[in-house]
Nucleic acid binder design. Structure first.
Lengths: 335, 335
DNA sequence: TTGAAAGCGCTAACAC
DNA sequence: GTGTTAGCGCTTTCAA
């Protein structure tokens, strides 16, 4: 007999069975200190009344909301949405809900987002973005909740994070080209000053240059491209710089460069080779298909979320800065 | 002097100023029944103590969480992530936070998601997905909170929704081809039984067929393609069916068909013309670029969220079933 | 204009 | 095992 009054409370259940709140609370929370017979009666009443615990009240009383905040640049960017997909799946697995905020990679919006999320009493936070301003960093620390960075790094490396070894990956790709005799290797980055671009990607590129005894030519470094269109326009600059190979940090941008080059009559890979870095679907739809570094995007998010659950459970992390393996996928945009 | 004890409560503020909780609550909530001098003192103390209201406590007391639930199939699908971007931006504008859940378009997961969101006492819900099972529908109604469908329809059309006129759009595209003399027009859908596919897209296609006196040929209707890969494989079927034009419901799928066709030596648009329907970046990166119906994706989300805010404020909706305008974008995948 | 007091629905000692 | 009793931090009558 499903009676299902709407919004039954724990009081209703207690009254129906003739026990106290505490007992109902115990069975709801799976405490073992309840006589089986009592438990069954309570369970029956719960089902009968359609009782579902009010998470808000629970959150107030227990100081746990089973909700995590996720701060990300832009969910329409495939790289970030795949990371977030990994986060979301693991969060669900551990019974957490996700409060999502887009920041467009703007530190001001990130700051508001973090504070706002803190007001909602989140149990933990995942932060993504190509930059983490000091202000945002201290706001995060002020919340007092555990945090994990996913696909992001802070200059000081004080926060736990999950990434691939960007420096090594960019070193390898660059070196690969240099060894094959490329003398005009261009590098396309999102910014000229952010940690992930400067400390890692560019550092790897420069290291390769040094290893092979080449001189850094600033005219071969392109920054500020964020979208497919940006990449397409940048192709003109790539041609002007007489680049013979391009390493790009983002798939949409790389695809823009590829199409921009071809639309201007440049053959890929014959005249210019291109390698991208995220290996999203965009690399597959390109013609020729784009060679790419393959980051385990979903896994970066999933691992980050898993680490966060440990932190929220006050467990120790065996490693604070996790680097996941990456691979190189050879397709037809390179010889 | 910013003192900033951590986690000051409303009590701390009241004590610091020497007023009651009620007064602090009034100034925090912008009630006008506070003497300016008092208000200023309270404000100063709030700033001084770094006081920020605990949203959970507030939610319990006021029965409003300023949080909306968003249920979507998959955030890595550009169509849905752009809708959600519109939702998120408007939600922020109205000071709501977004609890996001991916369902993979699975009714079972949608059901759990809705119930779970209800437990968190959301103030409203936006639902996206190509299907809305009866079970999910009644779970939604059982929550008692306002709902708006975005880019989705329910068979009964009982819920408010925001869409484009899919039937008309598919009618127009189909008729365009038929008028040009195409006799083998293929239709690619996501499913063979869901409302949005059957009642709208396919209905528009069939209507066009009738208008031009053509007989429906089931072998020209393809269903079940969800991804780029699916589309690529489907290309073989398109060739086998001797289709001379294709209308596809999704960009990634359309791009898969396009590349699958070309990889098999079929020229587009000379031998087969293709039109897609979502006009995401995927249509631009294609070679040739894909002609497409252009749905105002961001706006669909934004308008849906705006409608939801009205519903949450107990305002009336002038229109329950909103149809936003669409356009046709001609590119080089059609003659 | 301000304060007192009663909840909101639940958890968590602490008794029994 | 089970009940009692305080809260959690805030909003909201109702009085004053």
């Amino acid at each position: 007999m499903v009676d299902e009054k709407k919004n039954a409370t724990i009081y209703d259940v207690a009254a129906a069975v003739g026990v106290s709140l505490a007992t109902v609370s115990r069975v709801v929370n799976g405490s073992d200190n309840v006589r089986p017979a009592t438990r069954d009666k309570v369970l029956a009443a719960i089902k009968d009344l359609g009782y579902r615990p009010n998470a808000v009240a629970r959150g107030l009383a227990s100081k746990k909301t089973t909700t995590v905040g996720v701060v990300m640049p832009d969910m329409t960017n495939l790289f970030y949405s795949e990371l977030t997909r990994g986060i979301d799946d693991v969060a669900n697995m551990y019974q957490y809900d996700v409060l999502l905020t887009n920041t467009d990679d703007d530190p001001k919006r990130a700051l508001t987002a973090v504070k706002n999320l803190a007001d909602k009493q989140i149990d933990g936070l995942i932060f993504m973005g190509s930059q983490l301003s000091d202000e945002v960093l201290s706001a995060i620390q002020a919340t007092g909740v555990p945090v994990v960075l996913a696909g992001s790094v802070d200059h000081g490396r004080v926060l736990p994070s999950v990434n691939i070894d960007y420096q090594k990956a960019f070193f390898e790709v660059s070196q690969h080209f240099l060894k094959k005799g490329q003398e005009r290797l261009a590098l396309v980055l999102g910014s000229k000053d952010r940690a992930i671009d400067v400390d890692y990607r560019r550092a790897g590129y420069e290291e390769a240059l040094q290893t092979s005894g080449q001189i850094l030519d600033e005219s071969l470094i392109f920054t500020g491209a964020r979208s497919y269109q940006d990449g397409q326009e940048m192709a003109a600059g790539v041609i002007a710089a007489k680049a013979s190979a391009v390493v790009a940090y983002d798939d949409e941008v790389a695809l823009g460069v590829l199409n921009g080059l071809q639309d201007r009559g440049v053959n890929v890979p014959e005249e210019v080779e291109i390698v991208s870095a995220n290996n999203t679907t965009f690399t597959l739809v390109a013609r020729p298909e784009l060679s790419s570094i393959d980051q385990p995007k979903y896994d970066i998010g999933a691992v980050a979320m898993r680490m966060l659950t440990k932190l929220m459970d006050h467990e120790n992390l065996s490693e604070k800065q996790v680097l996941l393996p990456y691979t190189m996928v050879k397709r037809n945009s390179t010889k």
